[in-house]
Every structure is written in C-alpha cells, then in structure tokens.
C-alpha cells in the first residue's frame, strides 16, 4: 500500500509538469481557436533563451526577464508575420501555420543559442525530502513540490485573468468568433499578440521547470507529446482542465507502468514495460469515445 501511494503521489506530481505544457496549448486555443502545434518548440526556445542569457553573465532573475521579452517579441512577430493574414481562415489553415512555425523555431533556436544540451540551475535540488523519507520511507521530491506550487499559482492567475479582466473577456470573445469580435471593436491584432505573448510566458515557465529537471536541449520539444492526451482529457478550453488532465495522465501512466507489466507477462510471457509511451494515448482515446469534449471542455453544439 505504501509503495502504491508513493507511485500515485509521484505520478500526480509528474502530471503537474505535463499540465504546465498543456496550459500553453489551452491559452492559445481558448483565445484564438487554434491548436498551437508550436507550443513544444516554444518551450525549447524559452528555456534556451534563459540559459543563453545566463551564460552571457546575466543573473537568473534578469535572464528570466530577458527571456520573457524575447518570447513577447516572438509572440508579436508571430501575429504580424504569420497570423495577421490568416484572419477568418478555417482553423485547419491556422493549425498548418503553427506546424510551419514549429519547424521554424526548431531550426532557428539552435542557430541563435547553440544546440548543445545545457544545465539550468534554479537553485532547487531534485532530491527526496529527508523528513518524509525518514518518517514514511517515501520519496517525494522537493523540486516536484515546487513545480506543483508554480503550476497552482499560474492556473489561479490565468483563471482570474480570463474571468475578471477586460482583456481576458476580449480574448474569450475573439475565440468564439473572430468576425463578431471585430465588428464590436475588439482589436484582433492586439489580442492575438497578447495571447501569443502570454503563451510565450507559460512556455517560459514550463521550459524552466522541464529544463531544470532534464537539461535544456532539443528534447524539450517532445514535452508537447504528453500534452495532447492531457488536453483531450481535460478539454481544450479549460485552464483547470489542463491541470486535472495532467494529474490523471501522470498518476495513471505511473501506476500502469508499475502494475501492468507483471499482469501482461503472466498472460503473454516475455518482458513488458515502457508502457508510459502509449498508455496516455489509449486513455485519451477512451475519453474521446465517452466524452469527446473532455472533462471541462465546452460542449460544441451546431445549429442545423
């Protein structure tokens, strides 16, 4: 039972890390109706910006500010050069544009900042909390707890921003209908630049946490792989949904990785494992069958 709890808690904490990446997708989708395929690449760019600024002598706080400026400028440039000409185009066109954007960033970022993997030290050691280890013989990482705190703060801030600020409401209006939002005087260009800037900020937070955990390198772009099942489960338009989806994926994949292989081995023989790679997608598929809009997503109803 104790081991089960240890796996469950660690899975939930891993889920928070997935949710951090998924949040960026939700933001752009919520405010522009676009599935931003480039979010993983943005996580990579943001983390690379931080380490590169630090390598040039900037302290961590300054590097974060500079990286935020880079990501904001990137957001504005995306709006100006990629999205502006695609207003009122079908969502698939915008989606295709983000695929192109992902390849562009994946090529540009290493040219600008170098491609060698680097360490990012945030001053939080990823090791077990001694008190919990001694009292309950359970491994709970300090770093994972900090990541959970950061995610909680980020979600609260974003939820409040969308609910109670003028810009937040404008963002939601734009997502519902570009044309209608334009007709009542909402400046679409500014709104898109803002939302891509915020998505850049979320990518920066996710990039810093993932970069500090596994090193800053090209593989950060892979973090987006786990965000997709998280979004399907939580819903593409819900900020709390990203967190809940992340927790479900994190906990279930860790439990599956530990407890399914022995069952499969007794049934089929051989050596099983590496279930984490496909289990989240099977789970997401199941959700698509029973609740296609996700747990917290908006139900889409078309008039006929």
């Amino acid at each position: 039972m104790q081991f089960f709890l240890e796996v469950l808690i660690n899975g939930l904490l891993s889920g928070v890390m997935y949710a951090l990446v998924a949040l960026g997708f939700v933001l752009v989708y919520k405010a522009s109706g676009v599935f931003n395929f480039a979010q993983g690449a943005m996580v990579y760019l943001a983390a690379l910006s931080v380490v590169s600024c630090m390598e040039k002598g900037a302290p961590l706080w300054l590097a974060i500010i500079l990286a935020f400026i880079i990501m904001t400028l990137f957001g504005i440039a995306t709006e100006k050069f990629v999205l502006r000409k695609l207003v009122n185009q079908p969502p698939i066109t915008l989606f295709m544009a983000t695929i192109g954007l992902a390849f562009f960033i994946e090529g540009l970022a290493p040219i600008m900042f170098g491609s060698e993997p680097r360490a990012l030290d945030l001053g939080i050691v990823d090791e077990p909390i001694a008190a919990i280890l001694d009292s309950w013989d359970m491994v709970i990482s300090k770093f994972d707890l900090v990541a959970a705190g950061v995610a909680a703060l980020l979600v609260t801030t974003l939820a409040l921003f969308f609910q109670y600020t003028r810009i937040g409401r404008a963002l939601r209006a734009v997502a519902d209908d570009h044309q209608a939002a334009l007709s009542i005087g909402i400046p679409l260009q500014h709104i898109w630049a803002i939302v891509w800037g915020i998505a850049g900020f979320v990518a920066l937070v996710a990039g810093m946490m993932w970069g500090a955990r596994n090193g800053v390198q090209f593989a950060l772009t892979f973090t987006a792989l786990k965000a997709l099942p998280v979004l399907i489960i939580g819903g593409f338009t819900s900020v709390p949904g990203a967190i809940v989806g992340g927790l479900i994926i994190g906990a279930s994949e860790k439990l599956a990785e530990i407890y399914l292989p022995p069952v499969m081995q007794s049934m089929f023989g051989g050596n099983f494992g590496g279930i984490e790679g496909w289990f989240p997608y099977v789970l997401a598929l199941f959700f698509l069958l029973v609740r296609p809009e996700g747990l917290f997503g908006e139900k889409h109803i078309d008039r006929v």
């Binding site: 081991f3 660690n10 899975g11 994949e253 860790k254 590496g274 496909w278």
Partner: peptide, 20 residues
C-alpha cells in the same frame, strides 16, 4: 530488465521500481 519508452524524458515509475 526495465524498459523505458522513447524518448525517455520521464522515468519516475522506473526509478521507483529500482528503489523497490
């Protein structure tokens, strides 16, 4: 034998198993 799925950027479960 403990396998890790590609790309291997998440190994929490495997290492808990190793600890056990």
């Amino acid at each position: 034998l403990i396998p890790v799925a590609h790309p291997g950027n998440e190994q929490g479960a495997q290492w808990l198993k190793i600890r056990q």
